[in-house]
Nucleic acid binder design. Sequence first.
DNA 1: AATCAAACCCAAACCGCTTTGGATGCCGCA
DNA 2: TGCGGCATCCAAAGCGGTTTGGGTTTGATT
Lengths: 341, 341
Amino acid sequence: MNLKELSAKLGLSPTTVSRALNGYPEVNEATRERVMAAAKRHNYRPNTRAIRLATGRAMAVGHVIPIATRHEIVNPVFADFIAGAGETYSRNDYDMLLSVVPDEMEEDTYRNLKSKGNVDGVIVHAPRMNDPRIPLLHEIGMPFVVHGRATGTELPYCWLDVNNRRAFQRATEFLLDLGHVRLGLVNGLEFMDFAIRRRTGYTDALRDRGIALDPDLMFSSEMTEISGYRAAKSLLTLPKPPTAILAASMISGMGVRRAIEERGLVMGRDVSVIIHDDDLSYMKNGEDLPLFTATRSSVREAGRLAAEMLLNVIANPAAGPQHRLLEAELIIGQSSGPVPR
Amino acid sequence: MNLKELSAKLGLSPTTVSRALNGYPEVNEATRERVMAAAKRHNYRPNTRAIRLATGRAMAVGHVIPIATRHEIVNPVFADFIAGAGETYSRNDYDMLLSVVPDEMEEDTYRNLKSKGNVDGVIVHAPRMNDPRIPLLHEIGMPFVVHGRATGTELPYCWLDVNNRRAFQRATEFLLDLGHVRLGLVNGLEFMDFAIRRRTGYTDALRDRGIALDPDLMFSSEMTEISGYRAAKSLLTLPKPPTAILAASMISGMGVRRAIEERGLVMGRDVSVIIHDDDLSYMKNGEDLPLFTATRSSVREAGRLAAEMLLNVIANPAAGPQHRLLEAELIIGQSSGPVPR
DNA sequence: AATCAAACCCAAACCGCTTTGGATGCCGCA
DNA sequence: TGCGGCATCCAAAGCGGTTTGGGTTTGATT
């Protein structure tokens, strides 16, 4: 059932039917209702391909996912972000397009998306320092929103980010208040912007209390269980091991816990741990009582909001660049306590 | 730069240019090369929207993800599957469309995808017993491939699955060979088809050895860390606790391990554990020496293969339903050992 | 009664490509 | 010389919507 058939059945022109369905004012309310009813009855659904060609809009948003020699973006955090963004898209009748491409194809992919007209905008994931994607997207004129920020970029751009610096600064201060002085940092990869900011929060807090930085206490790697385990194991075998550890995610935190328990220590008593908790739906940090003390910020909610921002930008390209900085909560769980004496 | 402009520049008709670019035979080789060169020079990329309207094909594949009152499909396993499928799609110039919709909208979403012509086919995730999606997709004539199988469906359909029954049967037999007799099962939700099959593998193996089933030893829940933890905790506080546990995933396995260690026991010595390992890219089961003994099957590879099967079905709808059953490997890690005496 | 603006509807162009159904020119062969 | 056949190319008709630029009525205003 297409427009022509439907309008024939109704004895109207395609023009009028189209207008009736799309809420244009120049059509009699009575006919509009007649049209609506007929459309429902024959369950007419306009062909998306035709709409797209006619309007020039793709009604779709792209997410480009490089598969990674460099860095594995396909991680659980990413999945939850996508889920959140996807909710926004379906609510607004937009399609979500995922392009999983080899690293070296990333630039081409963006150019293709633009010139072939597949999408109206994109979300940029996992920004790095001086991220080349931002000038690229500017150049080709593709609307975009960055999830995170890209230090070093001087072009204006839209972003939505968690206040990672503040979150880790607060977490560090909290541990210092508990009397801890030697604090380990099990960070994510530090070419990632968020990891740089978290480290800054950590170092700022220490410096504010006049505590010297100890490079031996600072690790940076993928946020996997095994990396967390290895980093914590190294930390705990130091001559003067830390009494507290900040970890970059739930998963690396689980590795940290394993290393702690393997040495016969008790997390929260012998070693305090604070993680960053993305509030993943299938990996809750405890239920009544959180397992980990954590800086928490829902990445799914971030996905929802970033998608909304992008749809805004697409609908309203003239408006200046939008920004949104989400604050993480500091929630107290079982993994932190006063420094042991 | 569109076809008309390009053909004008070349002094040819759009017809000829189109044919030249698409490799049709009725065009002189010399002109074809001239056209190709010009296309590259002006980097002409045909407008996808127009191609889709003209050809009637969407050149896109859909994945519908219900957001879940019922069951959270947005999990790490799902993410890896998507990544694998996405690789196949980009290699074949197909788009991947993700629809994240509320449970109750699922049926509508499939109908919409079909009648609005957004996709040429879909992948069905996480099939359940008597899954209603299979008759639905049959009814609306949408090509599809199921990742897994749906017990109880009598209609023919394409699927790609892991031999879950066999995997868990082998794992169970392996533990029995080590002298274990009381085996706990920490299964996924048992309205999911794969969970039913795993349980069958477990019960078959026990029955074959003449061991009575003990309902107290069998748990079924979401595959989260916390559920794994809780199930294992219950198991270990039984009057006669099991000496070995089969867990449904890496993540629930980590919960099982936590429960074991919390009781001061050592995994692999006091309690053997076998998990199913989906070989997730960011959650490797150890590196040189696997942490967990596991039945392993890469879900990412499954994604690649399922997508290939679907593209096949789309290209060749007449061919009968295809099936593919992947076998899981049984890999030995540190989490299993002979029954303690 | 003539005029004019709304209100309502339609025919036709258009979006950018594919594909059908010829047209044209050239060559070989009877 | 005439004709069939092949190699090349093109005009025009879709694909299924939206949108432009009018046409008719109708009713109120002068």
